[in-house]
Design a protein around this nucleic acid. Sequence first.
DNA 1: ATGCACAAGTGCATACTTGCACTGATGCAT
DNA 2: ATGCATCAGTGCAAGTATGCACTTGTGCAT
Lengths: 209, 209
Amino acid sequence: MTSAAALPLRERKKAETWAALHEAAASLALERGVDHTTVEAIASSAGVSPRTFFNYFEVKEDAIVGLREPVLEASKLSGISVTADDLVGQVSRLLMAVAWTAIGGTDRARRRLLIAQYPNLGRRHMDYMVKAERLVTEGIAGLLAQDPAWSVGAEGFGPEEAARMLVMIAGVPIRFNLSSADYDPVEGISEETLDPSLTLLHHLLRKLS
Amino acid sequence: MTSAAALPLRERKKAETWAALHEAAASLALERGVDHTTVEAIASSAGVSPRTFFNYFEVKEDAIVGLREPVLEASKLSGISVTADDLVGQVSRLLMAVAWTAIGGTDRARRRLLIAQYPNLGRRHMDYMVKAERLVTEGIAGLLAQDPAWSVGAEGFGPEEAARMLVMIAGVPIRFNLSSADYDPVEGISEETLDPSLTLLHHLLRKLS
DNA sequence: ATGCACAAGTGCATACTTGCACTGATGCAT
DNA sequence: ATGCATCAGTGCAAGTATGCACTTGTGCAT
């Protein structure tokens, strides 16, 4: 029973505690409702103190949904070509990928059920988009700064400003999906649902610019 | 002393309580710091109970900054021409106007000082942009639905979807300003600072579309 | 003027959230 | 193996936020 331990003990226990808290939170919320599920109950069910709960999650809802801090891997970033045609599309897909890293836990059906039943759980996804955008903006700013076509800002704006606004624009299709009435947390952020929104965005950009 | 009473007694008292709470919150925060200012102290200084405080403000920070629910007047909305050239600019300016209605209180210098000193106070402005966008989206959706050029959605999207995304795009320059490092709460949302950001947006839209 | 509907304000109970100081287990260097 | 630095976890205290039931003053219709 030593083979599967790719991680040091500390890391593994941390992951186990996270999973235990998420599992407890999701199953309790499902069976007795979100607001009849106290942090106290979640923590006790996971075998830790309430104080520890808040070392893992900012708010109760995050534990129920299973949200983590998003991360941006360097390899993903280096796949971006700032001179290519569909830069908005590229950045949108990058944002989507980063947003996905914020979603932990494995039971997709349960998450879908919970968010359908308690819409304000879904609103936390939007909050995590802000975090994802922050990460991506940093990365894109780095890329733009290296490219001659972008590094000299027109109109008195530098690459940092361009990156910030570019990522905001690229975030629109994703925010659009997240704000749809029939938002599905499982399929809501995916290539299939992103593409139509991206098309609408391009359609509007052409119409408006 | 009866001449200035344009409002019924109830309304006036409500406005007075709001002002008293805001005044107490802002001045206490300024003199002893935001997190040494308790709701208890604010309420007591304004002569109401702590429970009443939360009938006026969602969170402590809103009382300090002086934030209210934004409103969209019908007259503002009817000034929009959905067939005009600079639709994005029009909607941006409308959003800005609505965002302004969320800012109460009169002491601009104090607000600037407080937000400069405690950046997370400024983040509440961004939250109120969401409310402003919701209002404007509703209104714009109504306008688009009446216009033949928009009412038949291309690509399987209707006017509701077009409005949602249009307003998101129009919100970008304002969010851009709000997220600037040197964001100034007094001048940050104004024609002068909106225009350059709007120019950058149009610049990018042309470059990307 | 009287009575009624409603909204502001309150007290209480409960729960969420965070800072701080402390403990013990882990991992690492020697 | 031993010692040490670090980090997960904890208990406690304070403060933030919300639902509910209740009181009272206001505005309005009769």
